[in-house]
Computed example of a mutant assay.
Amino acid sequence: MINIAERHQYILHRIQAEGSVDVQVLCKELDVSSVTIRKDLKLLEDKKLLFRTHGGATLNNPYTVDRPVNEKEELQSSEKLRIAATAAQLVKDNDSIIIASGTTVLALARAIKPQGNLTVITSALNVALELIRHDNIDVIQLGGLLRKSSASVTGPYSDNILSNVFCSKLFLGVDGIDLEFGLTTTNAFEAQLNKQMMDASQKVIVLADSTKFGKRGFGKICGIEEVDHVITDSGVSPQILQQLESLGIEVSIV
């Protein structure tokens, strides 16, 4: 049996080569228990050599942080524009939709050019300001506590509106997508509002660039199985795509 130093060297070699490791795979390869591997991963995390995740570890920090909306808008901007253009094609004349908050759904609001009438419910002030420029779009702005970092509202004041409507689609932006943990955002109150939006929608469409996969935010929105459609970019791994499709989730790659 190899010693602890050799195990650690093996784990670090694997994670540097592949980006992530799985506890059960390491158990078989090193012929040790899962308890031993988990202790090894904790020691390596304490040395800031990796980040532990559910069932394994990764080189990339899986935890998202709240950033100002103007800062987030600069990240993966070209991918967001392509995702938004694809999502805009799903908006039909005389549709009633919900648009949540985030920079990717803000890009969607800018891409929407309806020929007929459209009703949009949104929690995001910047989304509402983009859409009111169109004479044929009726915008319903949800109320609540304004989050400066996201330019959107949270809290119970939106309950009354959302409990009395039903829309064809929810376009949802997220801070993290973990196939085991689900969809997350950095704010628990925003996560709760997103859940209510889902209840008021026939179809849930997630707009997320590939950097959001494998990340977790503080507030859980829902399990991945509750999503109908994901629109993302080509940076997402084939393994993730396969897992999404195996769950019956439609995936569009831009």
Rank of each mutant, 00 (worst) to 15 (best):
N117Y: 09
M198P: 04
V65K: 13
A100F: 06
A128F: 13
L207H: 14
G116E: 09
G102F: 02
A100S: 15
R147C: 06
F218K: 07
E6N: 10
T154H: 03
N61T: 01
D178T: 01
K47S: 15
I121G: 09
I240F: 04
F189H: 11
I177R: 08
N117H: 14
F189V: 07
K92I: 07
G182M: 00
I112C: 14
V105W: 02
L129M: 12
A191E: 00
K42T: 07
N160S: 14
Q192V: 10
D93E: 11
S246V: 00
D95Q: 09
M1V: 13
G155M: 09
T211K: 09
D66S: 15
S168F: 05
V153R: 08
V127T: 02
V69G: 06
R133A: 12
N194I: 05
I15M: 07
V139D: 04
I240P: 01
V91A: 12
G248V: 13
S252N: 14
F166P: 06
G223L: 08
I98P: 06
P62R: 01
L125E: 08
T103F: 03
G143H: 08
D159P: 02
A208L: 00
A128Y: 12
T53M: 06
V236R: 05
D31K: 14
A85Q: 15
E73R: 15
E250A: 15
Q89L: 11
G143D: 05
Y157L: 14
T232R: 09
Q196L: 07
L129P: 12
L30A: 00
E18R: 05
A100M: 05
G182N: 08
S34R: 08
V127I: 08
D199T: 13
V254T: 15
G176Q: 01
G56A: 01
L146H: 14
L41T: 04
T211V: 02
A84S: 07
G223H: 07
A191F: 00
I137E: 10
I253V: 15
Q24T: 08
E130G: 07
L44W: 01
G219I: 01
L146A: 14
G173M: 09
Y10C: 00
N60T: 10
A5D: 14
L75C: 04
S20E: 09
I11T: 07
L183H: 07
K148Y: 12
R110L: 11
K39M: 06
L12G: 07
V139Y: 09
V91D: 02
K92N: 11
K72L: 11
D175T: 03
Q243V: 08
L146F: 12
S20G: 05
D178H: 00
G143E: 08
E180C: 02
S33N: 08
S96Y: 15
L193N: 10
K113C: 04
L44D: 00
